[in-house]
Design a protein around this nucleic acid. Structure first.
Lengths: 361, 361
DNA sequence: CTGTTAGCGCTTTCAA
DNA sequence: TTGAAAGCGCTAACAG
């Protein structure tokens, strides 16, 4: 049995299809009497308006695309939550896509979303210049970038002050007495990673500490795929499946940890790498914070329960999502809207940092 | 500038709109020559087919609804990931909704999804009988339930053997020497919670241990909202915002922990409550596992890094999502499809359980 | 206060 | 090998 249409309702109620439309949308006055007849007919037939047909004529789907890197990552998850809350309050649906930091997947998703005629897009772009993304923008679909930005795309960015966050983290470590502070960053096509690296560098320079390239560990796409020691690394992959960024960092980090000049502290610029770092510590028999201090970006509910409790740079993640959604909704409604200034972050000190170990020589 | 339609393409290529449709969909033979003309026109105009218009006639949107309780919960997140992977491989989009375990929100989401004409639905229902859900099923939309089931709904369920998982967990604790084993469960409208409670009970009875009602702590909707001690409890709310289930459990649990007959072990039947449990331990100055052993449902990437590393009943979460999606896709395609038997779970022993403390009297 | 009608952009017979 | 034309279910002039 096929679902009833507005035509069926009209017939049943003995009115025109226009009237049906108008009682549903309250878009012009209808006498109490007729309205009631229509309402009854709707009830009797179990009629539900077809949003697809409506979209075709109104050119509005009430759907917004949300493209993030990893739905498994608490950062994106919490941000998505903020977006969802705001969207649902305004009767918007969310169409969700994962990119896995893969520009190709990003492109696929964007094409699908474009075809689906989303009313707007919130995206944490991979960072690789994306023709699909630019085309979408060109076609007039409102876009807001969240967390990070994409090259050549003129769309407001809702993010935090990454450089400042990194800077504060490093200052804190320096204050604790650290001199050799490593920086572990994710792919540097991601704008936040470049910014955080800059913060790291600025703090070091300011303190007249050497900015040594050997102190930078980059999780880089080149390391994707089969790695030496893969089998061993695989054991750190948890129930949620692949975590490639983590694996590559894992290898590189171990090299650094085994090097003669190993750092006394490490700043992890992406929460995607924190887990791998902790596992690498274990694999190398390194205690934290006794042997090495750890400070990472992004807080989450579990951070205080880790061993050791994690000192982190905390972002207002939920708000990021909320603000992005509000901004997008404004843009969709043609209201004046401008990108907010970068939100500020906060250093949350817990137990994963301490003074550097005393070197006994 | 409005986007080009197939009519524009047809005009530009000097062919009919039907031909355009056919070259796009490869749905009937078109001479190489004409096809090329069409392709060129598409290119020149930057034409993108409008999926909304197509949906209206084909009655297929290539969108599936995914309704889960909490996008912030790693269990759902990983399952969603499995669904997404499978969906994207088949060119389906995911429309995501959070219920927050709130039947009303669930209803709203379902109404929106129904209007959007989703091709199918994967849902972890709140457990409260839902007219909207039943109506959707009645209207012929393929539905698969994931994790848990909804009353009166005849839709395949993709889940695990919850009773067995709980049973094994309790057996393990008993083997360790525990006699008083508490069970912390989420709302018992959730089918998994009832099943896990049954497993707990069965294991206790089998071992001739008392099944004491005082040992059951229920996170119940009645405790939602403002609680005594709210301000204190709030401090355990992390960066992701509200976690009501956690808070209510937090209160109740503390009462149990302070009672004269406090248990020597606790089985947490929902990962939504694990965090609160650990905080409650802290608040009461209880060490784990020295004072109380803890075993909970659901594993995740971070569990081994907790203090203490968590002993858990591990579900094949990602597969749950994947299987649900495959099943749904089959149903959408009218292929024969039947619910898989409950998947099995696995006890993963880490450090949060030990022998009970010796009572010095 | 309500009805008629022309599309929205596409797929799909039916004809040629 | 291709075109003409009839809708899909709805909204929004325009008429009355």
């Amino acid at each position: 049995m096929t679902r009833a249409s507005s035509k069926d309702v009209a017939r049943q109620a003995g009115v025109s299809i226009a009237t049906v439309s108008h009682v549903i949308n309250k878009t012009r006055f209808v006498s109490d009497e007729t309205r009631q007849k229509v309402l009854d007919a709707i009830d009797a037939l179990g009629y539900r308006p077809n949003a697809v047909a409506r979209s075709l004529v109104t050119r509005s789907t009430r759907k917004i695309g949300l493209v993030i890197a990893e739905i498994t990552n608490p950062f994106f998850t919490v941000a998505a939550r903020g977006v969802e809350e705001e969207a649902i309050n305004h009767q918007y649906n969310i169409v969700l896509c994962n990119t896995d930091e893969d520009p190709e997947r990003e492109g696929e998703s964007l094409k699908l979303l474009a075809a689906q005629q989303i009313d707007g897009l919130i995206i944490a772009p991979t960072g690789v210049r994306s023709p699909d993304l630019l085309a979408l923008a060109e076609s007039g679909v409102p876009i807001v970038q969240i967390d990070r930005s994409s090259p050549d795309l003129l769309a407001p960015l809702v993010g935090v002050n990454n450089e400042e966050g990194a800077y504060q983290a490093i200052r804190y470590l320096i204050g604790l007495g650290h001199r050799r502070i490593a920086c572990l960053i994710n792919f540097d096509v991601i704008s936040t990673q470049r910014e955080r690296l800059r913060g790291w560098e600025r703090a070091l320079r300011e303190a007249n500490l050497p900015v040594d390239d050997a102190l930078i560990v980059r999780a880089d796409p080149r390391f994707y795929g089969v790695l030496p020691g893969e089998a061993g690394a695989l054991s750190l992959v948890g129930p949620s499946g692949q975590r490639q960024g983590m694996r590559s960092a894992y290898q590189l980090l171990q090299d650094l940890l085994k090097s003669p000049e190993r750092p006394s502290a490490i700043f992890v610029a992406s929460n995607q790498l924190t887990l791998g770092t902790l596992y690498a510590f274990r694999a190398c028999g390194i205690r934290c914070p006794e042997d090495i201090s750890l400070i990472s970006f992004d807080d989450h509910d579990w951070a205080p329960l880790f061993n050791p409790p994690l000192t982190v740079v905390c972002q207002p993640t939920y708000q990021l999502g909320q603000i992005a959604a509000r901004l997008l909704l404004q843009m969709i409604n043609g209201e004046p809207a401008e990108a907010p200034p970068p939100l500020s972050v906060e250093l949350v000190t817990r137990a994963s940092c301490s003074a550097p170990p005393v070197i006994v020589s």
